[in-house]
Write a protein that binds this DNA or RNA. Structure first.
Lengths: 200, 200
DNA sequence: ACCTGAACACCGTTCAAGT
DNA sequence: ACCTGAACACCGTTCAAGT
């Protein structure tokens, strides 16, 4: 057996990525493994290692796609010409709604741990940082007397806060009450933080 | 071989717990496994299952200990008769310092996932909730015109926020600069949130 | 009754061997 | 050159067998 050449390397890579993403969406990332992917795309386990170095590599590529989708949604909101304060609330809501609707993909970004003691590669870290960068530019508009450093710190503090609420509130349950409660908390945190920030 | 009776079941349980905790502290929870524990306490792998149902059971007991230590530290701070606003800032600092100094134990509380789709048991959930309960009573003092429900929601929003900053800031690095930056963000979030909360 | 450790069912990853 | 799948080194968990 061996040698089929039915698909190019790029095609196989896309098939692996697609199959893996579907497994994560449907069963959560704990259910993801090479043998399941191989069965799904009808190739041998070894073939997956022709197109991805290992599981870390594969997962980071899925996460990169997820981060790109999230970034695109945030960018759209950031570009609507609302009042800046309203825009920030909208950005937080968008983040939360993304976390809810794509929960299994979203949580893999933060739960998956690289094997060994590897650092995240630069191209990946940039994508993570770009999330709060989206918020920084809007935050700047409500901070006329602040330095850039202060604005970056404040944005990261607030956005980590929003993220913390999402992580802790959503990880046990995703039922309607919990979602409503989470929305309340996110908006409360954002509004009070901004109110404190501009009155100081 | 078999049958030694050198140790009571309670003694073996304590030995397993102690050995497992040490491994987590020194090598992180990804390095924890039954064979390593067994070697450390000089018993067979199977013996661990005499005193703990499985890994989930063992990890939850370690986490319970960690949560108790954290709770005790927070309680001590909550009982100092400072200005309430100052106390909340101190509580947040205490939380952050605990996360830093016991990072591997602290992160296991939030990173470890139960196998299957199990819910956290009630006795465990109570311990988790008790963290923000510690803050609630102090928060009540600065919220004279608010209902209990609003105070609970606000406390959880703020505390999830503090937690979010800790999680995102500490998981890549624990060097001096990162720690200082994290402290700045935690205090910024708490102060601005409280300022917004009381001026509204 | 207490404890062992081989055995089982899973993982991720590799690589000699087939076409 | 492309692809296979047996093999390896790990996991957690079980349970027949020893004292």
């Amino acid at each position: 057996m061996a040698r089929r050449s039915e698909h190019s390397k790029e095609e196989i890579k896309a098939m692996v990525l697609q199959a893996a993403e579907t497994i994560v969406i449907e069963e959560g990332f704990a259910a993801l493994n090479v043998r399941k992917i191989a069965m799904e795309i009808d190739y041998a386990v070894g073939s997956i290692y022709m197109v991805f170095a290992n599981m870390d590599d594969l997962v980071m590529h899925i996460n990169a796609q997820t981060l790109d989708k999230l970034s695109a949604q945030l960018e759209q909101v950031a570009n609507t010409k609302l009042e800046p304060k309203q825009t920030i609330v909208q950005l937080a809501s968008t983040y939360l709604n993304f976390a809810i609707s794509k929960y299994n993909l979203w949580s893999m970004i933060f739960e998956y741990r690289l094997s060994g003691n590897q650092q995240l590669p630069d191209w990946y870290q940039v994508k993570i940082d770009s999330i709060s960068t989206q918020v920084e530019k809007v935050f700047k508009e409500i901070s006329p007397h602040k330095t850039d450093t202060d604005i970056i710190t404040a944005t990261r503090a607030l956005w980590s806060g929003v993220h913390g609420i999402c992580i802790l509130s959503l990880d046990d349950n995703l039922d309607t009450d919990a979602i409503e409660d989470t929305q309340t908390k996110v908006i409360l945190l954002v509004k009070n933080f901004i109110l404190g920030w501009i009155t100081k």
